[in-house]
Amino acid sequence: MGIFDRNKSKKDPKAYPVQKPEEEWQEILDPHSYHVLREKGTERPFTGQYYLNKDTGIYECKACGNEIFHSSKKYDSGCGWPSFTEPIRPEAIDVQMDYSHFMIREEILCGNCGGHLGHRFPDGPKDQGGIRYCINSVSMDFKKEDEKA
């Protein structure tokens, strides 16, 4: 195992409110979502179901239902993944350093279950804080505003 394989072999040491055995995560998530959320994978750019979504509503963690982003903070960054300027509330996400793939990045995790959502970069809209949250569609579900109960 090399230094850059760290995230594939170690579990995040933080104790999240929602924890399940890996077998249970495999039962409730489709294989692609499991790979992204639990194994820190990614989806191919420009292929995610929410990349071009313009509907109004809330993006939730697909693994646990935690509300993570509101559509009003979504914008087209051109990167190929859904991009947001900020989470719905600070504690909705957790940030940790990611040294995989010969890069240094800030990984975004669900603040409720620790599932991998994507990464955070300092190249967002300057008038909105300058941060881009680059998120995998397969790590989220979307609830239209009129569907929220």
Rank of each mutant, 00 (worst) to 15 (best):
D5C: 14
F142D: 10
G80D: 02
L117Q: 07
E43Q: 08
P31K: 01
G129K: 02
H119Y: 11
K143T: 14
R132G: 07
R89E: 05
N112D: 09
H101W: 14
K8Q: 15
G2T: 15
E39Y: 00
H32S: 01
D141Y: 10
L117T: 10
H35G: 14
S72M: 13
V95N: 01
P82Y: 00
L29K: 00
Q26R: 14
F4Y: 14
D76W: 11
K143M: 05
G111Y: 02
C61Q: 06
H70C: 11
I93L: 06
R105T: 13
T56R: 11
M103G: 06
D94K: 00
G130Q: 03
P31E: 04
G57S: 01
W25D: 02
D12E: 13
S100F: 08
I108H: 08
K62Y: 12
F84Q: 00
L29W: 00
I3C: 13
H35M: 10
I131L: 08
M140T: 04
L52E: 15
A92D: 03
K148F: 11
D5M: 10
S83L: 00
T47H: 02
K62V: 03
E86A: 04
V36I: 12
G41P: 13
T42D: 03
G124R: 04
C110G: 05
K74H: 02
D146S: 12
G129P: 09
Q49V: 08
K20H: 10
T42L: 04
I93P: 06
E23G: 01
V95I: 15
F121E: 14
N136H: 00
T42P: 14
S83H: 02
G57Q: 06
I68C: 15
H119P: 02
K74G: 01
N112V: 02
Y75D: 05
E27V: 10
G114C: 10
P21I: 03
Y16M: 12
H35Q: 14
S137L: 03
S71F: 07
K148G: 00
Q49H: 07
M140F: 14
D5S: 05
E107N: 10
H116D: 13
P13K: 15
D55M: 09
I68M: 14
Y50C: 02
D12G: 01
N53V: 09
G48C: 06
G114H: 01
C134I: 15
G111N: 03
K54S: 14
S33I: 09
P17N: 09
I104R: 08
H116M: 02
F46C: 09
G2H: 12
V36G: 09
S33F: 06
N136Q: 12
Y51H: 13
P122K: 04
T85M: 04
W25H: 10
I3F: 14
P45F: 08
P122H: 03
N112P: 06
K54G: 07
